[in-house]
């Protein structure tokens, strides 16, 4: 098997990008005590929104903003049903995902007369790829780190922004306190509903970026069902990392790496495609088991230490 390691690492980062956005979207909601499964559908809506606004607005910028706006709108829509309408969040998000699957095709058909892709009817705009001035000249590292989409760099910056927001700002503290114990938060005068809306808004923002990356960076058009479960993977990535932004990013990178490896193996090995499709998921489950074993052992050690005292 011939494999260009630099390109492999480059792809790992590229494939992890939508997952990182999805994981960040999910973990903000999680810290506010809400397990939002609707991210898959939100990303799908945003992916369609991005190409639509790019086409009608005639530029990449309107597409980027449109994608984010649609992401935020869908987030607020779920937030509205859950927080104001008091619906069950699981049922709402499951219904929302099903609605997004059909709804995006319907809206696309109304706009383009095409039921599978916007590729023919909408002009394509791409979020630019950026060459980083100094790094791009470093032999190996330059090939791995430079030349990514603007959104990829934004994803990595976002990891630290979200960490900062959650652990270093007042609103982050409020989000976490609502997640820990809404009653207690309410009793000291924090509006659970308001904080919930902020969490859904931020979740929508990152879902919007994930969708925009899929339809305006990875490929340059929208296609029905193009998320292919990436929202769910992001969701489980943050779950594995217990809601830690950095941990979620690492899990996303692990998933990106295994997917990238499986892609190469599809061309160069005799393994059945179905088996290779399984690898990223299998690796994720194994990683969850291993991290959990590690955590349990650590807890046991601490408890033993306490008992010895």
């Amino acid at each position: 098997m011939t494999i260009d390691i630099a390109a492999f690492l480059f792809d790992t980062i590229k494939m992890a990008t939508p997952l990182i956005f999805a994981a960040l979207a999910a973990l903000i909601n999680r810290h506010a005590g809400m397990f939002n499964m609707g991210i898959e559908g939100m990303i799908l809506c945003a992916a369609l929104g991005a190409v639509t606004f790019a086409h009608y607005g005639g530029s990449m910028i309107t597409g980027l903003l449109g994608g984010i706006a649609v992401g935020i709108l869908t987030g607020l829509f779920i937030g509205f049903s859950h927080l104001t309408g008091k619906t069950d969040l699981y049922l709402t998000t499951i219904a929302f995902n099903l609605m997004a699957t059909g709804g995006t095709v319907f809206v696309m058909y109304l706009m383009t007369g095409d039921k599978s892709t916007t590729g023919a009817a909408f002009r394509s705009y791409l979020v630019p790829n950026i060459d980083i001035p100094l790094i791009k000249d470093i032999p190996f590292l330059g090939k791995v780190l430079s030349g990514h989409s603007l959104l990829t760099y934004l994803a990595f910056v976002s990891i630290f922004l979200v960490w900062f927001l959650l652990y270093k700002t007042r609103i982050g503290l409020r989000i976490r306190s609502v997640g820990e114990n809404p009653m207690a938060a309410e009793s000291v005068g924090i509006s659970v509903t308001k904080v919930g809306y902020i969490a859904f808004l931020l979740c929508g923002l990152f879902s919007g970026l994930a969708g925009t990356f899929l339809s305006m960076s990875w490929v340059s058009f929208f296609m029905k069902g193009m998320t292919s479960g990436r929202g769910y993977i992001g969701l489980s990535a943050q779950n594995m990392a217990n809601g830690s932004p950095l941990g979620s990013a690492l899990v996303s990178l692990l998933f990106g790496a295994t997917t990238s490896l499986a892609t190469t193996m599809k061309s160069q090995t005799k393994f059945p495609t179905e088996f290779l499709d399984m690898i990223p998921y299998l690796a994720t489950i194994l990683a969850i088991i291993l991290t959990n074993i590690y955590k349990i052992n650590k807890k046991r050690r601490i408890e033993k230490g306490k008992a010895a005292e």
Binding site: W218, V219, K266, T273, D277
Partner: peptide
């Protein structure tokens, strides 16, 4: 090679 996955005929990425 084969695309495979959930949407083998609709996964351009």
């Amino acid at each position: 090679a084969a695309v495979g996955g959930d949407h083998p005929w609709g996964d351009p990425a």
